[in-house]
Design a protein around this nucleic acid. Structure first.
Lengths: 186, 186
DNA sequence: ACCTGAACACCGTTCAAGT
DNA sequence: ACCTGAACACCGTTCAAGT
């Protein structure tokens, strides 16, 4: 059997969701495709590149149309979409955050946040720093949340359930900080 | 040669700083100590537990006395100390953030932030969420910053240098968000 | 209490060679 | 263009046995 890059990405995402990031090895993915491990290196330079493609696919599948009202609503929509996209697949948050840290993928949400803030009239430096701050928040919160959700569904409940509204509250803290610095904007 | 737990932690931190987290294997640490890999399992149940001990040691070494003025200064001091402690060792931010996500160590900074905010009069829920938000920010920002610093010092400079003051600016965003919710406090 | 020796079940990656 | 087969240099962890 012969595959294209997209077939491998699709199987990779399915494998991620079924067994988790820790069990997503080049050898296992190759085995699942009925192919030698070395065959994967015809399509991807290395595992990091493959993971970047998986992360981008997870984000692509979670894409939603965005509102056209104010910057706060747009920022909330981008962050909410990012969170939902990552929560939709097992270990999705860890995968996307790791790939973003690599610098090899998962760039879209950060770029959208930054341009949204620039277009809202914030200075370039503030827009860049605020976009990174929001991104770190969403990655960190969602990874925590997903670890908790997955531990719970595995039957290893280890504490009181955190409310989903926590996400909105933490986000509101940063948004209020931004709003305080927008007195001169429309 | 026979070792105690503390000897292994000390060598582990030295190995981390010399070769990075990716090259910190149980086998390599054992080799460095002149001992069989299996010997380490007499002192630590598994690699995660060992990494948790290393993270706590890195944080312990970075501990500083804290100011007694307002909650903003205390929060800034805790976050700054955390950042400095992680930056002091190669891959320190990645190690501490990973261990914190495990839930096996690196709990002190989060607990200090939360109790600082509770004592400042913020409600329990807000204090908990704000502490986590601040922690995610410091972990994310510092991991990014350290990746950049380490790439630069390896000669692989790949973009314009980010300023250290970025850290203070992102932190100020969250602190302003908190301040906005403290009108009824002293 | 602390360690050895050997094994089990894996990894990512490279590379000549095949079709 | 895409894959095989074989190899290289590793992993974390377990466990009976030694001192």
């Amino acid at each position: 059997m012969r595959y294209h890059r997209d077939d491998i990405v699709e199987r990779g995402v399915a494998l991620l969701d079924a067994y988790g990031l820790g069990d997503l090895s080049m050898r296992r993915l190759a085995g699942e495709l009925g192919v030698q491990p070395s065959a994967l290196y015809h399509h991807f330079a290395n595992k990091q590149t493959l993971l970047a493609a998986l992360a981008d696919e997870v984000l692509r599948r979670g894409a939603r149309p965005r509102p056209t009202d104010g910057w706060k609503e747009q920022v909330r929509a981008i962050c909410g979409e990012l969170r939902d996209a990552m929560l939709a697949y097992r270990d999705g948050a860890e995968l996307v955050a790791t790939v973003h840290a690599f610098g090899l993928g998962a760039q879209a949400p950060g770029l959208m946040l930054e341009s949204t803030l620039v277009e809202a009239g914030f200075g370039d430096e503030l827009a860049r720093v605020a976009a990174r701050t929001l991104l770190h928040y969403v990655f960190g919160h969602t990874a925590d949340e997903q670890a908790y959700l997955q531990a719970s569904s595995a039957g290893a409940l280890a504490g009181p359930p955190r409310e989903t509204s926590d996400f909105e509250l933490g986000l509101a803290l940063v948004l209020d900080g931004l709003r305080l610095r927008s007195h001169q904007l429309g």
